[in-house]
Design a protein around this nucleic acid. Structure first.
Lengths: 156, 156
DNA sequence: TGTAAAATCATCCGAAAGGATGACGACATC
DNA sequence: GATGTCGTCATCCTTTCGGATGATTTTACA
């Protein structure tokens, strides 16, 4: 904690030094004194805020060690339901069955190559389906496509 | 954190230096001081905002983990909204809070670059966190990591 | 005060993914 | 027979990811 005060003083001194050094030039430009003082004020204000945040931080971390260690069993075992994809959204978006099939495989974490192997098609085909599905979902990445798919109830 | 102070001082000094250097030109262009002051103000404002976000970030993440653990205490009632990640699995796998944070952003479909922007860190850092999280989860791809994370109750 | 864990950042390199585009055959429908 | 959709496959090119590795800084804790 001592270090912060030291840094504070150091920066302050440095600013004051530069202030003294550049003072004369600023006098030449009339009315720039107010500007300059405002700048310094802003500078010190932000720095002060920073310092305040910095100091108040270490106090809250102590609380963390107190609370920990409890629990288990979030109970996350949904029944084996066959999952019915939302065909309404699927059709309005124009997503074909094949594209949805590939989307589910993407959601399970398979790569394009693995998907191609599983479906007995070429990797290029998978990529084409991907591109079309992404376009229809408005997704730029497969993770985004998965997220959108789950939002729309297309994926389990 | 020392680096921030250094950057702070550096930017300040640089600005003052350029101020000195360009002073005469601004004298020639009469009364452009207002424009100049506005520019400097904007600069420092953005810098201050950046600094503030940068500083408060780590504190918020810490506070978040505290809240999460407090939520976990009533284990019998599976509350719907605030989603409590399974800390048991998280700790046995050695997944840190930061890694989990990045995992959730991955699950939401963000790219590494987007995540880096949101968290105010470099893309390289995000990639490092990714690599470690993937390793701990036994995942080779981000989609796979998301799938594993959901299986383990780490992600909503 | 020293240490260990965590977080940060970087570089190199190869693999994977994505965009754009064209093409071809099967099949259904009008 | 013309048209349209779907599935298939390809090439070229760019971007993104991921692995490996090393380094520094910050934080927590003993």
């Amino acid at each position: 904690m001592k270090r912060h005060v030291l840094i504070f003083g150091l920066v302050g001194g440095l600013l004051i030094a530069t202030l003294q050094y550049t003072e004369y030039r600023f006098v030449i430009i009339e009315h720039s004194v107010e500007l300059y003082s405002a700048l310094v004020a802003i500078l010190f204000a932000t720095f002060g805020i920073w310092l305040g945040l910095r100091i108040t931080r270490s106090r809250e971390t102590i609380r963390e060690t107190v609370v920990v260690r409890e629990v288990l069993v979030p109970a996350e075992a949904p029944a084996l339901e066959p999952f019915a994809p939302n065909t309404a959204h699927q059709q309005t978006l124009g997503i074909t069955a094949r594209e949805l099939e590939i989307l589910t495989l993407i959601a399970r974490g398979f790569s394009n190559r693995e998907i191609a192997t599983q479906l007995f098609v070429s990797e290029n085909t998978v990529k084409t389906h991907c591109a079309r599905a992404f376009d229809k979902l408005g997704a730029a990445r497969r993770t985004q496509a998965v997220q959108r798919g789950k939002e729309l109830g297309l994926l389990p």
